[in-house]
Every structure is written in structure tokens, then in C-alpha cells.
């Protein structure tokens, strides 16, 4: 069965055309990136501000716990049958707006929690020193808190990205675009190998996105150069160095 699935994936015909793997993959990517960008615009400023002020921590941490419990498909169904409707929303297909809203809601928790925790966990002494030397609140945030919180924040973005990509598959359940269409087609035709092929595509996509994000995280980490700098250890005193001259 895995063999059939791979055969399906390796068949060039299946990749081209308006109902081909290529088109669906690009649609899913578009959904994912739009939802992620919207969630970042919505959630990050609030979370970062709250973290800087060291407030609403309980809320920020528990929004992830609550968010995990929400069934995304149920939300999508309710929105598409209800207030948001199921009109075609440009390249996002049928019920595109409802799908985007559901995915944004789904992406918010990891973004918010990580942004908040990242900022609040920055060493308080460093923040106090920066305030004490006359940095404005804005400068403290931009020059000290944000760079030092970047690894944790980026991890939140990475989590959200991969989660949204994998979940965007459900758009097919409201006749929307994306790789989920391959899976539903497989189900309808009772062709397990097609279902598996679709699932494989989503999984591989997730791995690729994760890998790219890890690279991005590494690049964006301001401590990257600091960590790799080994230099002379603090306690190294070379034998020919006279002790009184050693700066301790």
C-alpha cells in the first residue's frame, strides 16, 4: 500500500494541472502563510507588550492550554455555516475566510504564549541595568528584551507555522483548496493509497517547513555569535603572566 502511495506521488501527471499536487501544495502554503502572518500581526504586539509590562502572564500561558482543546474543524464548520459564510474568498477557495479565521485562532496560542514567556524570562538584572542607565521603555524593549527573547519567540512562530500547515488540510472538508483535497478524494474513492499519499505530502511539507524555520531561528538569534565565541576562558592565567599583572 505504501508502494502504491509512492507510485501516486512519483507519477508526474498527478503533479500538474488545476487538480494536481503542485497546485494543491501551493494553495496550502498560501493559506498557511496568510494565516500565520495575520496571527503574528494580531497576537505578537499584544503579547510582547504584556510581557514587557510583566502582566497578564496567567492569561498568556493558559491561552495555549485552552487553545489546544478547541476542535478546529468544529470552529470552521460553525463559521462557514454561520456568520462568516462559505463564499469563495479569492485564492483561498470556498469558505476561504472562515478557514483563515479558524487557522488564525489556532495559530494564536503558541505565538502568544511564547512571545510573553520569552520577554518575561529575560534576565531581570539586565533589564534593570538597561533602565538604570537611561534607556527609555521603548529602547529597553527593542535593544535588550526583544533580541534576548528572540529564540523563544521564534520557536513560537515555528510551532505555529507547522501546526497551521498540518491543520490547513481540513480546508478540504469545506470544499476548500489544499492538499486535503487529495485525502478526501482518496476517501471518497475508497483508495487508501491516495489517502496515504496525501498524508505523506502534508507530513513532508511539515518537515520541510520545520527545517527552514530552524535555520531562520538560528540566523535570527542575536546570541549566535556570542555563543560561538570561545576566546580565552576567564580563569586562564598563562604561566608566564605575573600574577600581580593579571586582571581579575
Amino acid at each position: 500500500m505504501l508502494g502504491d502511495a509512492l507510485a501516486y506521488l512519483f507519477d508526474a501527471d498527478n503533479w500538474s494541472g488545476p487538480a494536481g499536487i503542485g497546485t494543491f501544495a501551493i494553495q496550502q502554503l498560501l493559506l498557511t502563510i496568510t494565516a500565520l502572518a495575520a496571527a503574528m500581526l494580531l497576537g505578537l504586539p499584544l503579547a510582547l507588550w504584556a510581557g514587557h509590562r510583566h502582566r497578564y502572564g496567567f492569561l498568556a500561558i493558559n491561552v495555549s492550554n485552552v487553545g489546544r482543546a478547541v476542535p478546529v474543524f468544529a470552529v470552521l464548520l460553525v463559521l462557514s455555516l454561520g456568520p462568516v459564510g462559505s463564499e469563495t474568498f479569492g485564492p483561498y477557495g470556498r469558505a476561504g475566510l472562515a478557514t483563515l479565521i479558524s487557522l488564525v485562532l489556532f495559530a494564536l496560542p503558541p505565538l502568544i504564549t511564547n512571545a510573553h514567556v520569552g520577554i518575561t524570562e529575560v534576565d531581570r538584572d539586565i533589564v534593570e541595568a538597561s533602565r538604570g542607565m537611561g534607556m527609555s521603555e521603548g529602547k529597553v524593549f527593542s535593544s535588550v528584551e526583544l533580541p534576548l527573547a528572540m529564540p523563544v519567540i521564534m520557536t513560537g512562530v515555528r510551532l505555529a507555522l507547522v501546526q497551521v500547515w498540518a491543520t490547513a488540510t481540513i480546508a478540504a472538508l469545506v470544499a476548500g483548496p489544499g492538499l486535503g483535497r487529495i485525502i478526501t478524494r482518496g476517501f471518497a474513492n475508497q483508495s487508501t493509497s491516495v489517502v496515504v499519499a496525501g498524508a505523506l505530502l502534508v507530513a513532508i511539507g511539515a518537515l520541510v517547513l520545520e527545517g527552514l524555520m530552524v535555520l531562520a531561528e538560528r540566523y535570527a538569534d542575536p546570541m549566535r555569535r556570542a555563543r560561538s565565541a570561545r576566546g580565552n576562558g576567564p580563569t586562564t592565567v598563562r604561566p608566564d603572566e605575573l600574577l600581580p599583572d593579571a586582571v581579575v
Binding site: 464548520l77 455555516l81 470556498r94 472538508l173 470544499a175 483535497r181 478526501t184 471518497a188
Partner: peptide, 9 residues
């Protein structure tokens, strides 16, 4: 339009 058999959708 691919919508499930007899579904609310």
C-alpha cells in the same frame, strides 16, 4: 463542489 453526502454543508 466536493461536499459530503447529505451533510449540513
Amino acid at each position: 463542489v466536493p461536499l459530503d453526502f447529505g451533510s449540513a454543508q
